[in-house]
Design a protein around this nucleic acid. Structure first.
Lengths: 216, 216
DNA sequence: CGTATATGAATGAACG
DNA sequence: CGTTCATTCATATACG
């Protein structure tokens, strides 16, 4: 029952390769870190606020009229990893046509138009309507992201709006700045460097969770 | 230090018994729960709504003046985007439930139903009724877009657009019954993208915990 | 070879 | 409800 050298699909009932186990340990360690951070955060918050009941989701109302809710989500990041092994890539001919269509009509092609385009392009290679749709979506979105950056010379009018996303964190609910440096886990970020060290840096060097030692 | 004989990290060079693996998975699950609970706690305590300077929320469009934040891969600096990931992401448990509800009743859930669902799902992670509402809206809209997809001829019709349904179905890998009500992100922990992000020592490059290789 | 960038795709949320 | 936007993930490819 030597372990398989490959981590291909499922080696066998109840065994893990060394690497897999390592991954598991790291994941546990990550959770440990997150928990710790959250605990710290909670403590610091709790010491300032009388614990009031939540009532966050009760009022909201599905009705799409003004409900400015924000939904901080810290939980799992659902992974999506469909095998994109057949990722469509436009042929050069297709790309030319797409570009020219994009040029001539900056508007978004509607559904029929998409269909037409797809039909047309299908003569130059595999393509689906979805591909066309995505292409236009991306094309538009990305040209929009790039434009204001380069030509923003004259109308700098409103770039105060930058970091819409950072400002959010400055919400300052009563003012304690210690909030800032608590690396609160949107688990995407901030944990990464912990892992990338191959060790759980510094403070978190040895976790004993239950009966397994997570050190390295 | 005290490596119990059976749980020690390196019993037989890289293999674990099924029992050991089970233990690990349970531990991870427990941590996941704790994290989520703490996150909820945090959210309720720190429920701040910083939309003081915005009228309508996030639709305003970030103005990418300096940098709008772009490539997640290179985000290595200390600038942590702690704050809320504004966008809700269903946990896999939630997703399963949603899907099953969607299956059984293709009609539009009325408001009462939405509320029930939201309540139910809130036990598996943060969620609002609006999230549920949106989810159903999107689910229906997109499944409808998928259907009239008369692909480019009868060739290779199965393509990207088709997989929308199966790909997320991530069947539970069996395992802990007593934990199945926990939000634990299924076989794959959802942080595997952390592990495969290149910064790691190459051993952890592309596989997930469930030992399923997703790429080919 | 390893990293950086470009880009197809997925999806929550918002708009009309 | 249908459509669109914004953001993010994953991968292919370019680059050094």
């Amino acid at each position: 029952m030597e372990r398989e050298n490959q981590n291909s699909a499922y080696v066998g009932r109840g065994v893990m390769t060394e690497e897999q186990m390592e991954t598991l340990r790291k994941q546990i360690a990550v959770y440990a870190v997150i928990c710790e951070q959250l605990a710290l955060l909670h403590n610091s918050l709790a010491s300032f606020h009388p614990l009031s009941s939540e009532t966050k989701g009760s009022r909201v109302g599905i009705n799409p009229n003004g409900d400015g809710y924000f939904n901080p989500m810290v939980a799992s990041s659902s992974a999506q990893r469909i095998s994109t092994r057949n990722r469509w890539t436009p042929t050069s001919t297709q790309l030319q046509i797409l570009e020219s269509i994009y040029e001539e009509k900056s508007g978004t092609p509607n559904r029929r138009r998409i269909r037409e385009i797809a039909t047309e392009l299908s003569e130059h290679g595999q393509i689906t309507e979805t591909n066309v749709y995505n292409w236009f979506q991306n094309r538009r979105a990305r040209s929009k992201r790039k434009q204001p950056q380069t030509m923003a010379t004259t109308d700098q009018a409103e770039d105060a709006a930058v970091t819409t996303d950072e400002k959010r964190s400055c919400g300052d609910s009563g003012g304690f700045e210690s909030y800032e440096h608590i690396l609160f886990p949107s688990p995407d970020l901030g944990i990464e460097h912990l892992l990338s060290r191959g060790e759980l840096s510094g403070d978190f060097n040895s976790y004993t969770i239950a009966d397994i030692k997570y050190k390295e």
